[in-house]
């Protein structure tokens, strides 16, 4: 990877971070209403994976999905307009923060039922085997979702049918307020994939380049008709599970350590250490801020979803 590649990753991560911080600000100000799950600290997974995908490929995400949408190319404006319940939102306010989709960008949607995206992604991969599109499907879910029956069912289905799907587990150590290690005996979640005959790898999810390398291999496997791969990406969310989470479950010092190891800080330090000018590194942030501020201004000015349309789109 060249310095420019790293700078591009940094910019992509800043775009997500600044978007999330803007959504937090709008939520605290009361412009955004309802439960919101931010992905601060986990940006390298979305950026690392999506950077390897082609336009035709499909991503199925979770409620913690703003960053995945953005990494797939969904612009900031329709995302912000969606969480602000505006007509101009990607789904006109129907989906909201936790359940929107933008298939025109290969973003097949968030899902607010833990684990539910995995079988659906498996179905999307099944379609690839019939339409010969070469489409690879990514489904992302958390560590806690590994304990939901839908996930192992989907994994085995994909393994048995040799489907081009990549299971990405964002292991951020917690499921809501409960540490994953209290809820499993074997903390190596990837071992479950191995047991099903699925090639599995554990990567540093705070390193976009490492995530990208694992994804590239998984994509190659899938495109060659060799079936699914499982990627366990170790990362940390440096915010609460949802906005308002008091995070009393965190041991002392944990958040500080996580903040020091988060992907944007890390890559910035790495670039500066390798001789890139501090101003060049900071430009990635500044560009993101300018873009998101402008998108937020437009989204706030956009008109609210029209109640008269509430019953549209239920059936064909």
């Amino acid at each position: 990877m060249t310095t420019d590649d790293h700078l591009a990753d940094l910019h992509a991560m800043w775009r997500i971070r600044v978007l999330e911080e803007k959504i937090l600000e709008l939520r605290l100000a009361g412009d955004v209403v309802g439960s919101v799950h931010l992905s601060n600290g986990q940006e390298a997974v979305a950026v690392g994976v999506c950077g390897q995908l082609r336009k035709q490929d499909a991503v199925f995400a979770t409620y913690r999905g703003h960053g995945w949408a953005m990494a797939r190319g969904v612009p900031a404006f329709p995302i912000l307009a969606e969480v602000l319940a505006r007509t101009a939102g990607v789904n006109g306010g129907r989906g909201g923060s936790a359940h929107f989709s933008a298939p025109e960008y290969g973003f097949y949607g968030e899902n607010s039922i833990v684990g539910a995206g995995a079988p659906i992604a498996t179905g999307a991969a099944l379609a690839s085997t019939f339409d010969k599109s070469g489409r690879v499907v990514v489904t992302v879910f958390g560590d806690g979702a590994m304990n939901q029956g839908a996930v192992p069912e989907a994994m085995n289905f994909a393994a048995a049918m040799n489907l081009p799907v990549i299971f990405v587990c964002e292991n951020n150590k917690y499921s809501e307020l409960t540490p994953i290690n209290d809820m499993v005996r074997n903390p190596d979640l990837s071992a479950r994939a191995t047991a099903l005959g699925i090639p599995a790898t554990r990567v540093d999810g705070n390193d976009a380049a490492e995530v990208a390398a694992a994804t590239a291999l998984a994509i190659q496997t899938a495109r060659h008709g060799l079936g699914p791969t499982f990627i366990e990406a170790h990362t940390r969310r440096i915010v609460g599970h949802y906005i308002g989470d008091a995070q009393q479950y965190r041991p002392e010092g944990e958040l500080e350590a996580d903040l020091a190891a988060e992907p944007i800080v890390r890559l910035s330090h790495q670039l500066i250490a390798s001789g890139v000018a501090a101003d060049t590194v900071d430009a990635a942030r500044r560009r993101a801020v300018t873009e998101i501020e402008e998108a937020a201004r437009r989204a706030l000015a956009a008109s609210a979803a029209d109640p008269a349309t509430a019953l549209e789109h239920l059936y064909a």
Binding site: R94, G96, A305, D306, A310
Partner: peptide, 11 residues
Amino acid sequence: RDSRIPAAVGL
């Protein structure tokens, strides 16, 4: 009304 429930408060 027989519908899905939209996230937007107004809807």
